[in-house]
Structures are given as C-alpha cells and as structure tokens.
Design a protein around this nucleic acid. Structure first.
Lengths: 190, 190
DNA sequence: TGGCGATTCTAGCAGCGCTAGAGAACCTGT
DNA sequence: ACAGGTTCTCTAGCGCTGCTAGAATCGCCA
C-alpha cells in the first residue's frame, strides 16, 4: 500500500507543479509563452507527461483558472469584510475585483475570456467557481431593492467585467477608469 | 495610365474578396477555420498573395472587424431612429446591439475581444469605429443627468458588452438574459 | 538477480503563420 | 512580331504549435 500511496503523492505533487509552472509562465510572459514544450521544459519532464495528467492544454489552463478563482475569492472576501457600511463594502469589492484583473491580466483572461470548459452555474460547479460570485452577491444584497438578487449580481458583475476587458483592449479612455467605476456604483449602490 | 488604373482596380477588388471570404469563413465555421491556407483556397490564390495585401493574418481580421463596425452602426442607427420616446430608444438600441452580437458571435469577438490592433479613441480612429459608439451615446444623452456623457456611454456600453460575453462563455444563466437587460436599463434609463 | 509493469522518453504527424526565391505573365520599345 | 524588363504569383520550405505511437528505461517483487 505504502508504495502506491507514495506514487500517488508524487503524482499529485507533480500535478501541482504543472499548474503552478503554467501559471508562472502565463503571468510572467503572457499567453503565447504557455506552450506544451516550454511547460515541459520548466517542469523538467518531457511533453507526454503533461498528457498523463491532463487531457490537453486547455485542461491545464482550466486548472490554472480554477486556482485563480480561489485567489480572487480570498481578495474579494477580505475587501468586503474589512469595509464598514454596505456602500463602502460594495465599492471595496468592486475595487478589489478590478485590482485583481489589473494585477493578473493574463490569468483573468484565462478565468473569464478564454472559452475554457469549466462548468459554471450548474449543479456540479466546483466551489472555487461559485465563491467569487457569492462574494459579489453578498456585497450587493443590501441594494437589491425589488430586483432579483441573482439577476442583479449577474448584471453588476457583467458591467464590472465589461469595464475591465474593454479597457484592457484599449476600447475605453484609459485614465477615466475611476470615473466609470464611480458612475457604475452610483447607478447600482442606492 | 489606364493600365495601372485597371491593375489598381483589380487589386482593390481582390482585397475586398479576401475580406469577405475571411468574414464568411469566420461566421460560418468559427474562428479556428480562418487559416491562411483555407483563406487562400477560398479566394483561389496561393497563400503569399494574402501577404501582398495585408501585413499578416491579424491585419486581415482587423479589416473584417472594421467592416463589422459599419454593419453594427447601421443596425443601431435604425433601432434608435425608429423608436419613439428616449426610454424606448435606448432599449431598442441595447436590444439591437445584443441582437447583433448574438447573430454574429465570431464577428463580434473579432471586433471587441480579439486584441486586434485598431486605433480606438484616438485622433486617427476611422469613422466606422467611432460611429457605433456615437449611436449609443446619442441614445444615452437624455439620461446623462449630472454625469459626464462620455463616461456614461463608456460605462453603459461596457455593461452591455459584459452581459454578452459572459453569457456567451456560459458564465451567466442563459435564459435570464432579458431580465438582466431590463435590470440594466432600469438602472441607467431614468 | 532476473523478470515484469509501470512510467517516461524519443521521434514524428499534421497543421499553423509566414517568406525566399523560382517561375510565369504581362507590358514596352524596337 | 518579337526580345527585354518589370511585375506578379507560385512552389517549397522554415520554425513553430498541440498531440501521440511505440521504444526504452526505470523500479518493484519474487
């Protein structure tokens, strides 16, 4: 038993190694740098090893994205619970969300833009993928008025996401970012 | 003179052929189908011909996207001028925008998601790229209140964009689309 | 220590964007 | 009408991609 246990432990360890190596590569050199060859070189194994852990490159990126969701959730939660009144809490969560996207642009892209096949909004959605959404929802709860809270959360989240991706793709005036965020909050946090 | 004129005419004609072929391929078979080889085959020339017209594949996609902006502008304008009161006009423009994105998902992606290097929001921005934005702005003008109109337009547009891309990537409950749109209008069209 | 299973590697496939240099087509001047 | 020169277009190929079959190697057990 012990031998098999060690092997599985080593396997799991190497799987973590692959994911963190992919994330490092993604964040430090951007999307184009994440190739199976470079990844294999970084973990000091040959390419086919990657395929014994993941079905393909997109599965690796899905794992990276999932790890990113855990981080994002932590940052949102910290922002929400630190703030005082609901108005400030929502502003803090939105700012934290925007900050995450700006500090990890490539990772953010993997999480939200890439058509990576993660099961969202379905019964089998992993908790990491739910929790970031739930932080947003709790921050929005005081402002639901007579709107459905889930619909409100999805809409506000979409607006925030839109601001970030369009800015990143240079579709928006770059230095008006804070004004847009403030305007959005003005329309939702009342 | 006439010979050179004919040559330039033929060249321009072939350039249009390339762009429409690329758009056809993009819309009918998706992004992955648009390869230089398939494109060359479709226009019945060899690959290098493409590079005598465009700097590279991304320049071709930029041309496709620009053509898309012209179409989008026309649809937004029709929607805005057909509607009656400002509230309905904004709703109609938003619906037209969403409809365009749904009917041409791959084209929409080329226009807004792809990091295609088109000069937005700069002095040398081609008119096609401005006008769609301007339609949105005019629809929003009655609702600016004490907010800056440009900031309002960018924010509303981002929200709309976010709703569409997150839905397309299955991050939102698919059939709540209309409710989210209505909620967004409720927060902006007052 | 020899043999067997599991694991890992080498080598290669088909496809990608892109380009150098060969070849064909065309216009021009005699 | 034809040779010369220019302009255009094609063939062939480079280095890269994600991915995989089959060979080789390693580690465990008798």
């Amino acid at each position: 038993m012990s031998i098999q246990a060690r092997r599985e432990r080593e396997r799991a360890e190497r799987e973590r190694l692959i994911v963190t190596a992919a994330r490092d590569l993604l964040e430090s050199e951007g999307w184009d740098a994440v190739t199976t060859r470079r990844l294999a070189e970084k973990i000091e194994y040959s390419q086919p090893v990657l395929y014994s852990h993941f079905k393909g490159k997109s599965a690796i990126m899905a794992a990276v994205a999932t790890a990113g969701f855990a981080d994002l959730t932590a940052e949102l939660r910290a922002a929400r619970t630190a703030a005082g009144d609901p108005r400030r809490a929502l502003a803090a969560v939105a700012a934290a969300y925007a900050g995450f996207a700006e500090r990890h642009p490539a990772l953010y892209e993997a999480m939200f833009t890439q058509p990576v096949d993660l099961p969202f909004g379905r019964p089998d959605t992993p908790p990491e993928l739910r929790q970031a959404y739930e932080e947003l929802r709790e921050a929005l709860r005081p402002f639901a008025r007579d709107d459905d809270l889930e619909t409100l959360t999805e809409t506000f989240w979409s607006a925030l996401h839109g601001l970030l991706v369009l800015r990143r793709n240079d579709r928006l005036r770059h230095d008006e970012h804070e004004h847009r965020l403030a305007l959005l909050l003005g329309r939702f946090a009342t």
